[in-house]
Amino acid sequence: MDLSAINPALLIASLMVAATPLLFAAIGELVVEKSGVLNLGVEGMMIVGAVAGFATAVETGSPLLGFVAAAGAGATLSVLFAILTQYAQANQVASGLSLTLFGLGMSALLGQSYVGVKPPQMQKIDLPVLSDLPVVGPILFGHDPMLYLAIALIAAVWAVIKFSRIGLVLRAVGENHDAAHALGYKVVRIRILAILFGGACAGLGGAYISLIRVPQWTEGMTAGIRWIALALVVFASWKPWRVLLGAYLFGGVTVVQLNLQAAGVAIPVEYLAMSPYLITILVLVILSADKSSAPAALGRNFHAAR
């Protein structure tokens, strides 16, 4: 056992990368849920984003365009969900799960010719002096632009929800759609916009996996993320900054357990492998004292005429 082999600065830097896809997907889902809609199709939108981003980046040679396409593809898929739940009044849980099934299949069909292809690399932001600083350098300044975008997105969502009128309307719709409707807000339109935003974010998260974190295209490559993004929103009690905390905690424990394995720590591997999930539960129990709860209208469909 040799714990000195673990470099904390590098560890933190890599957990930030590990957590970024989760950040994108979870912050999008948070906005969707704030508006009172539960979209369990996150994985479907992620993987479609992953393949669309990958294909676009390969064809155009530009990872940036890939991310744009991924956001577009995620949002496009979420339109299906919006139609089902907002117009056809379909059950949200079942619609979301069906969306995941559909997205997994669709992405595999679209991605057939991209297996084994190497995507263009996204340049890291290289700040001459700052990136070379010990400890702080790799943690704060050595990453790709998308990672910073994810954090900026968290900050933006937080600010918008907390301070702006849009945020107020969003929360009103999510807490009590009938009252919001009575006040003259377009409940359905607001929810659709939230769903589209969630889809775009999930798409970005997917593309982050296929273009930066892994990077390759394989069918079902979001396997490890599956439900974690959804769980994070619950974990965060619908608060943006706690999404960041949760994603870094989860990503952190995952990376730490691999580090401990590599360092030869005498803890049975299967328990190490369970640790991210157990620690997440434990932290949630500790945080349970915080009684802020889900948006009151979460998962309920709205029909204006009732």
């Binding site: 590098l10 890599s14 892994v214 390759q216 396997a223 490890g224 990376v255 590599a262």
Partner: peptide, 21 residues
Amino acid sequence: WAFTWFDPAKEADAAKVLIEQ
């Protein structure tokens, strides 16, 4: 040990960890 047959993201993490060590 990744304890999975297939999870590219986890494999990437595992490789990074080994390289860092």
